[in-house]
Amino acid sequence: MLLNRPIPLSFLLGKIKFEVLAIFVFANVVFVLRHYVGMEILSIPIAIPALVGTCISLLLAFRTNQAYERWWEARVVWGGIVNESRTFIRQLLTFLDDSARLATIPTFARRQMGWCYLLGQTLRGQPTEQLVKTYIPQTEQSGILGSAHGPLAVLQNQAEQLRQIYQNDQLTDIQLAQLDATLTRLTDLMGRCERLKKTVFPRTYTFYLQVFIILFTAMLPFGFVENLFFLEVPLVTLVASAFFLIEKSAIQLQDPFENRPTDTPMTSIAAGIEESLNQLVGSPATIPQVPSSLFYTL
């Protein structure tokens, strides 16, 4: 996630460098043909590109809004994961007696921390073996590493341990039902993340918008009927680049789980959950080190 800090120009323009170069070259070709070859016929009323630009602006506004809604939904889902993870451990602390707390709750907490990290890494397509070895009990590691869906296997292990505690008469029927409801909500939140990950933004909409932007860019150099001379090329490049930059920004926002600076900060959120759960179970509340840069956090 981008932070409220200065963003390097290289990051902003790096995504459109080829488009900017193409615009600059094309604008120079039109400029040379009009002013040095004498092809003054290469001009159109400025109202034409202005009208096209206005239409594209409306489409871009809608496009950016839809992309942001996807990003924001992902952030809301992970906010729910924070709340439900804390609720799960807090319920265990409330329901179990002192002897059961010491024997089982630290295991539940470590497993829940691992689930949060594991879900984030799985959504990003990153390796998870080290996370499993760090947070999951050794007897469960092979089963999770060999499963087709690691995060789901971790939640099932949470449920299995709850069943064992219930069979030992350490939980009542109502308490078990409440804990199972919390695990159900965590499963639902995981499914919402997967829906966002697997639902592709309509490709045709992106393609048509890109075609319109290219059309606008191609018409723009011909619309400067006034003799601005050396200002024409910089102005054309600047105006057209702004449209490409907004469109690229929307593309980055629409996929919040792709291990990019604009991602939902799942690793940072999981680190916050770890700190909270450590506090609840009485473990050292150390703040995990999360890789970050000067202008974004993962």
Score class of each variant (00 low, 15 high):
residue 104 T to V: 14
residue 95 F to R: 05
residue 148 A to L: 15
residue 147 S to Y: 11
residue 174 I to E: 08
residue 154 V to S: 08
residue 96 L to I: 07
residue 102 L to I: 11
residue 98 D to V: 05
residue 155 L to H: 03
residue 102 L to Y: 09
residue 97 D to G: 10
residue 160 E to P: 00
residue 179 L to D: 05
residue 158 Q to C: 13
residue 117 Y to W: 12
residue 163 R to N: 15
residue 96 L to R: 07
residue 170 Q to M: 02
residue 92 L to V: 12
residue 174 I to A: 12
residue 113 M to T: 15
residue 162 L to C: 08
residue 145 L to G: 06
residue 130 Q to E: 14
residue 177 A to S: 06
residue 158 Q to P: 04
residue 147 S to F: 10
residue 141 Q to N: 09
residue 121 Q to N: 12
residue 142 S to T: 14
residue 166 Y to S: 10
residue 135 Y to E: 07
residue 136 I to A: 00
residue 135 Y to N: 05
residue 145 L to W: 04
residue 98 D to W: 05
residue 171 L to K: 05
residue 91 Q to L: 13
residue 149 H to N: 14
residue 99 S to T: 09
residue 106 P to E: 07
residue 133 K to L: 14
residue 159 A to N: 11
residue 102 L to F: 05
residue 148 A to Y: 11
residue 97 D to H: 13
residue 97 D to L: 08
residue 122 T to W: 03
residue 99 S to C: 05
residue 123 L to Q: 00
residue 118 L to P: 00
residue 163 R to K: 10
residue 110 R to A: 08
residue 152 L to R: 15
residue 92 L to A: 13
residue 103 A to F: 06
residue 171 L to W: 00
residue 165 I to R: 04
residue 143 G to Q: 13
residue 123 L to N: 00
residue 101 R to N: 05
residue 127 P to I: 09
residue 153 A to I: 09
residue 132 V to K: 06
residue 159 A to S: 13
residue 100 A to Q: 08
residue 92 L to Q: 09
residue 164 Q to R: 09
residue 98 D to C: 01
residue 119 L to P: 03
residue 105 I to Y: 04
residue 99 S to I: 09
residue 155 L to C: 01
residue 163 R to H: 12
residue 130 Q to V: 14
residue 176 L to V: 01
residue 174 I to T: 10
residue 124 R to M: 10
residue 130 Q to K: 15
residue 149 H to C: 11
residue 97 D to Q: 13
residue 119 L to S: 03
residue 149 H to S: 13
residue 100 A to K: 01
residue 126 Q to Y: 13
residue 143 G to N: 13
residue 176 L to G: 03
residue 127 P to C: 09
residue 166 Y to R: 10
residue 160 E to K: 11
residue 165 I to S: 08
residue 106 P to C: 09
residue 118 L to W: 03
residue 176 L to N: 06
residue 157 N to W: 06
